[in-house]
Design a binder for these strands. Sequence first.
DNA 1: AGACTATATTCAGTTTTTTGAATGCAAAGG
DNA 2: CCTTTGCATTCAAAAAACTGAATATAGTCT
Lengths: 114, 114
Amino acid sequence: MTASYDEGAALFRAMGHPVRLQILNMLRGGEVCVCHMEAAFGKRQAYISQQLMVLREAGLIAARKDGLKVFYRLADPRVDVLVEMALGLQHVGEPETLDNCACPHCATARMEIA
Amino acid sequence: MTASYDEGAALFRAMGHPVRLQILNMLRGGEVCVCHMEAAFGKRQAYISQQLMVLREAGLIAARKDGLKVFYRLADPRVDVLVEMALGLQHVGEPETLDNCACPHCATARMEIA
DNA sequence: AGACTATATTCAGTTTTTTGAATGCAAAGG
DNA sequence: CCTTTGCATTCAAAAAACTGAATATAGTCT
């Protein structure tokens, strides 16, 4: 019974960090690889991975490995709504799909298409 | 722009604590005085006040003073939904209205009615 | 196998949060 | 005015979170 509050609080604590919230918001747009976040946020890769670990342990995101890259997605549809509400109901999130990704892989992917 | 994430994160951090979450959930049922929380949670009064301060500073709750007592309520309707979602969409919250309050004031209030 | 790439983990120092204890303060009653 | 009641604030020690640096791992390619 008190466990419910502990679990709920743990959920909020995991979301209560600017970078993690930004990651979650980005994932609302669909699956994203780590290198994309690295490029989009301008943070060190190790740092991004640390935050991803927190989110993973909280059960907020799930990972899919494809070759060398790892793609992350929201693990729970509730998270989408929670993030949306916290950011003010109108904040659409940067249209940061893989399209404007500056990481080597995404860039070359675009070149192949064009 | 980054401020949005900071603000959202601050919101979640304020909610990311078992006792504070429990307080917020209680307030979903309406206005409640501090003495009621004290009795309902079995925590020291000063401790409750500390958590209330955090919630107040985060803009999640508002206070109304009536004589010696202070009544708190949710300041933002979004909070109601956020708490509800975090607690699992079904958790109704203890039916802890002022009716089952063990604090002196609430107890005598009941006696006056009966 | 060796080198390289993408991501993960560990470690340590710093900052923040948490929480118990003590104290402060304003309103009400006598 | 003095006391009591209900709540708030301050302080300090312990616990936890944050983050930079270094290191590890796993997959790919030659």
